[in-house]
């Protein structure tokens, strides 16, 4: 069982959360000419690292906020969690 510290609610079990994928992926800016390559990178291409991974989780059975989680993909250790708008250094 993973225990994820929601920045709004505190430590909760993974059962309350839904996964949202790689949080480092940036959507191309609106109202800008976007190449096929940029769309491809945004929609399909993922680094999928072994080790530290910044990812989105949705506290769907809790406060319903999206949060960011810094987690190790090989040990499942969670280093830190952040609010969605928080900058991760």
């Amino acid at each position: 069982m993973l225990y994820i510290k929601c920045p709004h609610c505190g430590l909760r079990s993974q059962n309350e959360f839904a996964y949202g994928g790689d949080a480092s992926v940036k959507r191309p800016e609106l109202n800008k000419e976007i190449s096929d390559q940029e769309w491809d990178e945004f929609v399909y291409l993922r680094k999928s690292p072994r080790g530290k991974h910044l990812e989105l989780w949705h506290h769907v059975s809790g406060c319903r906020q999206w949060i960011k989680v810094l987690r190790d993909t090989s040990t499942h250790e969670i280093f830190n969690t952040y609010k969605s708008e928080e900058k991760v250094g």
């Binding site: 079990s13 990812e55 993909t73 090989s74 499942h76």
Partner: peptide, 13 residues
Amino acid sequence: DGYNSYAQRGNLP
């Protein structure tokens, strides 16, 4: 299991 993982072991939920 539903999240990126390289661990060859699972989780109970």
